[in-house]
Design a protein around this nucleic acid. Structure first.
Lengths: 164, 164
DNA sequence: TAATAAAGTTAGGTTTAACTAATTTATACA
DNA sequence: TGTATAAATTAGTTAAACCTAACTTTATTA
């Protein structure tokens, strides 16, 4: 939660991404990126400029202020983290992972973001334990069956799952 | 995605929950449950009735239609699943898990919901592999350090993480 | 340089979802 | 039974975000 609406976060993320892909950002770029029409972008830019998030002179190009860039970058970082979670941890296709990241990037608490980030980092770091975990989980996703040798497992009561 | 707006999903979930907690559901119950005012609920009920999701006669009680109940139940099921994920798997406090579940229940794709459900089921089923995983993950959450004996791990290239 | 095309803007409208203030209906009890 | 209170409703407002249609500015190029 940045304190801004979902739409504002989307505009700032879009401009942030466009700024690093091309020298200047124009109204039509933002419109086509977000799949909306030019007049909607123009109206939004007016409101974003009043909030000191972008600079935009009529018929000119669009630039993020430092404040706006910070928000855009933050949303994009959330997006990448969620994409990694959906794709690398849950094993969803890049297309689906992308869409879910796009929608969820606006709605997670700081605590949830922190934990998901740790989960991605932990899985990426790849210690002995969770390579096995991911392999077992993937097997379960594919077959709905637990891996061999599981039924005699007796470790279920070793530790409560809740972390205070 | 049920095809309804976030607000509609929230109304139906609220009425669904209230219906099973008390014999009759009234405007004020929905209003206080959702933290909004009576006139907002009255206006919403009109629109919900037009969509054949609730029945409501003036000054009377509120009932879900079968169609509305199906949606309300579906959203509540998503809520419980997400709560389990945030609380039991990620180890977030019940309060934070509740709030995140509340916001996210509207925004996940069917694919993501399916995978998260499988993850919760898999962790609950508790085969040998991921008890260790959860213990290791909790240790990592607490200390930012991988468990002992991890650095000589050589299993990282056993299998790609992406499931087609 | 003048005409045309592309991009941007303005004006005005729609939908969703909330609100307050004022009014009406239902209920409870003196 | 009549009146006070609680609940529900109506009317009117606001704000966010989008839209189309019409117009203006900028850029291209014949």
């Amino acid at each position: 939660m940045t304190g801004y609406t979902r739409a504002i976060e989307d505009y700032l993320e879009a401009i942030f991404l466009l700024e690093r892909r091309q020298r200047v950002v124009r109204v039509k770029d933002v419109a086509s990126f977000l799949g909306i029409k030019n007049p909607s972008v123009v109206a939004a830019l007016k409101s974003l400029a009043e909030k000191d998030l972008v600079e935009h002179e009529s018929y000119g190009h669009i630039e993020l202020t430092p404040k706006g860039r910070a928000v855009g970058e933050e949303i994009y970082a959330r997006h990448m983290m969620l994409f990694a979670f959906f794709h690398e941890v849950l094993g969803l296709s890049p297309e689906v992972a992308e869409e879910d990241a796009c929608r969820l990037e606006h709605h997670l608490s700081a605590e949830a973001r922190g934990r998901i980030l740790q989960l991605v980092e932990f899985v990426r770091a790849c210690p002995a334990g969770e390579v096995r975990f991911l392999q077992h989980f993937q097997h379960y996703v594919r077959t709905s069956e637990r891996p061999a040798g599981c039924s005699e497992c007796s470790k279920c009561d070793t530790e409560p799952l809740f972390i205070p």
